[in-house]
């Protein structure tokens, strides 16, 4: 059946409710909401969340924005925590100690920010994926430690101004390139890995989420989730920023399935990177006279990575 946003929204009540305390213009809540909507009616889910913006603002005792069972333990171990829940499920089901309602199954979904996923939680994530737990790990990547006040992470793009990589008079922002976590996860040879964002009618996000959740085994989604405070854009521009990330090929949308790469979105007209950088205050210093080299270096990096991805697609589909 063809994807229809209106029908999905009308027929599938949000499992991630309103009333949470995430910022206006934050990219994470629409991601969580849409991913949970990809769960089939009647199916249950247990959500494991690493410490971060999403956790501290959605489950403040005695309230919870999660209508599914939810567990948060610490910053670096959503992967391991979720693997424990999944192992319990397997064990209890096998022993006949857990009887699910007719036709229902339980899915396991972890949410972590880039801090909890690319950095402090990378080991826990890698371990959980390698062990083959039947779970989906979702990284909502806002490109810095936003919860603690915009400190650089290994997901922060080069030159970005953060509170621990401030654009100063000598050092113009973060001097290191962004880690490519999605490719690291592909190197785990998982049955399904995808990189996406919330764009247009959310079709791509929804379909990739459904595929990830219902593919047996460990699956990984890396979803760009802009942060108005950290990136410095107007809150109403969230969807525009996402669109520009895709159209400049800063954030390629693709999937990795059965060892093959498939680029899901190839913009008809690949926009220059300035289009993505300009609306964001974290890149403001790059537009000062004399800093043209920074924009060029940024563009070169984007082009190189985009070409590498196209090469991977070509090689694996020969």
């Amino acid at each position: 059946m063809a994807y229809n946003l209106k029908e999905v929204v009308a027929k599938k009540p949000s499992r991630f409710t309103s009333g949470h305390r995430m910022c206006a213009g934050c990219g994470a809540p629409p991601v969580a909401r849409m991913i949970l909507r990809a769960l089939h009616d009647g199916d249950k889910a247990v959500v494991a969340n690493s410490t971060g913006c999403m956790e501290v603002s959605t489950c403040i005792y005695p309230y919870s924005a999660w209508t599914d069972s939810y567990i948060h333990t610490a910053f670096e171990c959503a992967g391991a925590t979720c693997s424990g829940v999944e192992a319990a499920y397997k064990s209890l089901k096998r022993q006949g100690k857990l009887v699910e309602n007719d036709g229902s199954q339980t899915k396991f979904i972890s949410f972590g920010g880039d801090g909890g996923t690319y950095d402090i939680g990378l080991q826990s994530l890698s371990g959980a994926m390698e062990r083959g737990h039947d779970m989906t790990y979702v990284c909502y990547d806002n490109g810095a430690y936003m919860n603690t006040g915009i400190q650089r992470s290994s997901a922060t793009p080069k030159f970005a101004d953060t509170t621990t990589s401030p654009a100063g008079t000598v050092i113009p922002g973060k001097m290191q390139s962004r880690k490519d976590l999605t490719l690291i996860m592909c190197s785990h040879h998982l049955p399904y890995v995808a990189q996406t964002l919330a764009m247009g009618n959310f079709k791509d996000l929804y379909e990739k989420a459904e595929k990830a959740i219902y593919t047996e085994g460990p699956t990984f989604l890396n979803v760009l989730a802009p942060c108005p405070r950290g990136w410095g854009y107007n809150t109403e521009d969230l969807m525009l920023i996402n669109k520009l990330a895709a159209d400049t090929c800063y954030w390629p949308i693709y999937e990795f399935e059965n060892g093959k790469y498939h680029v899901s979105y190839k913009p008809a007209k690949k926009l220059p990177i300035e289009e993505f950088l300009r609306p964001q205050k974290r890149f403001k210093h790059m537009f000062k006279p004399g800093n043209e080299w920074m924009i060029k270096a940024f563009q070169d990096e984007v082009d190189k990575r985009w070409q590498e991805l196209l090469n991977l697609e070509e090689i694996t589909n020969r």
Binding site: V46, I71, T73, T81, S83, G84, V85, E86, A87, A88
Partner: peptide, 9 residues
């Protein structure tokens, strides 16, 4: 962490 997840489950 896994024991916590499992026990909570």
């Amino acid at each position: 962490s896994s024991c916590i997840g499992a026990e909570a489950a």
